[in-house]
Write a protein that binds this DNA or RNA. Structure first.
Lengths: 225, 225
DNA sequence: TAGATTGTTAATCGATTAACAATC
DNA sequence: TAGATTGTTAATCGATTAACAATC
């Protein structure tokens, strides 16, 4: 399969791409100019074959017998991930979580500017959080198209998430980060990444229960790990 | 493989368990008392075989020819996930993200109480966020053991994450939700769930780049999807 | 050229889905 | 009993890892 055609790339590959990028940035800051996949893997706890295979989806970036040129590969990864440009992002939900995301420096540092916020609550509309004025969702289609915004974040309660998502999509958004504990149902061309922090905590409590050997049911009990 | 022995359960199965639980809670609120795996799958967009297989790791909860008793299965899932008890959680990092998590209602609603916060910054120690006093990390081992806290959340900058993690582990924590953009290196018995919101946004910008057909490199260009 | 490391194919592993015997 | 649905095994699918020919 050539990278010239638009093969669909595994999600996991894309996620790893940004891990690789982080590694390369660290290497570059140390002045490393060339490195082999084996060295990268060893140093950062990755698999060298996987690294090469992930890159192969997108082209040939290395030199046989030599390795990869750090700044060059870094540039390629940034271009592939779309990180050479700044992305305007719309946020729906100006509650605790939403406000935090607005104040959070981590996003804009990485080129994602939350430049538009919406909230259904009439009391909030017109107020500002972190210098961004909260708008009425009714104006979403107009405002988002005007700004050319294609990425949205949902930080509403679960009950409002589906409606928020549909409104985003109707406003031209085709990539959504959903932080609400709700499964969204949207057309397939829309990419939805669902992050449910409470659900992640539940996997941790599961781990604790198992580790502490607490689960018992009638005569069936798990042994302590 | 019997569920009586302590088989290791796939992470994905555990994650789905909390999805199933959410579905069951919805069904119960509607007064549905019995349901088949096929109906659950159909209604919530899941796979019935996978649902049955996931449950099979933990026991037999259904009745052949009939289906599952909603309140009963719900109870089993809660017990398996450790959601019948309240979990005390320690947070490291009282910046924007950390403060938001403290204020966020979603966690305590689901039985996770962030009852302890630490921050390295001397200016912050002694102040309170959402009614919780920020403590000096030096006191972590004493305080966490006293409270029996085993779950930690890291919301520090990347540069402080590894140290925070080690301190948590040294204080008896064996489950960590890492929100810092840094790969943690910890003993294998410690469960680490890494959630990097900025990295998730990067997969979305990747999706946008592909969808908009922007990526070009020399003569090699991806076709518009 | 000899040594090294890529890009890529083949083998392995694990997870998902399908099929069906057990059984309510 | 006949029909339905589970629990579980077998088949499929996809992702990871290993191996190696291409080639710098």
């Amino acid at each position: 399969m050539s990278h010239q055609t638009s093969a669909k790339i595994p999600d996991k590959t894309v996620t790893r791409l940004s891990i690789y990028l982080r590694c390369l940035e660290e290497l570059e800051s140390e002045g490393v100019s060339t490195i082999s996949s084996r060295e990268v893997a060893q140093r950062f706890g990755l698999n060298s074959a996987q690294l090469r295979k992930d890159l192969a989806y997108f082209g040939q970036f290395g030199v046989r017998g030599v390795g990869y040129h750090v700044p060059s590969l870094e540039g390629h990864l940034k271009e592939i991930l779309g990180l050479n440009q700044e992305w305007k992002v719309a946020l729906v939900g100006a509650g605790n979580l939403g406000s935090a995301l607005l104040k959070y420096k981590g996003f804009s540092q990485k080129g994602f500017k939350i430049c538009m916020v919406f909230d259904n609550h009439p009391m909030k509309v017109g107020k500002s959080v972190a210098g961004v004025e909260i708008k009425d969702p009714k104006k979403m289609p107009y405002l988002l198209r005007r700004e050319g915004i294609r990425i949205g974040i949902i930080a509403t309660p679960a009950s409002a998430a589906q409606e928020a998502a549909e409104k985003l999509v109707a406003s031209g958004v085709s990539s959504i980060l959903n932080l609400a504990p709700a499964q969204l149902s949207l057309p397939p061309e829309v990419k939805v990444q669902h992050v449910d922090l409470a659900a992640v905590l539940k996997t941790l409590s599961f781990h604790q229960v198992r580790q502490e050997g607490k689960y018992q049911e009638g005569s069936r009990a798990w042994k302590q790990v």
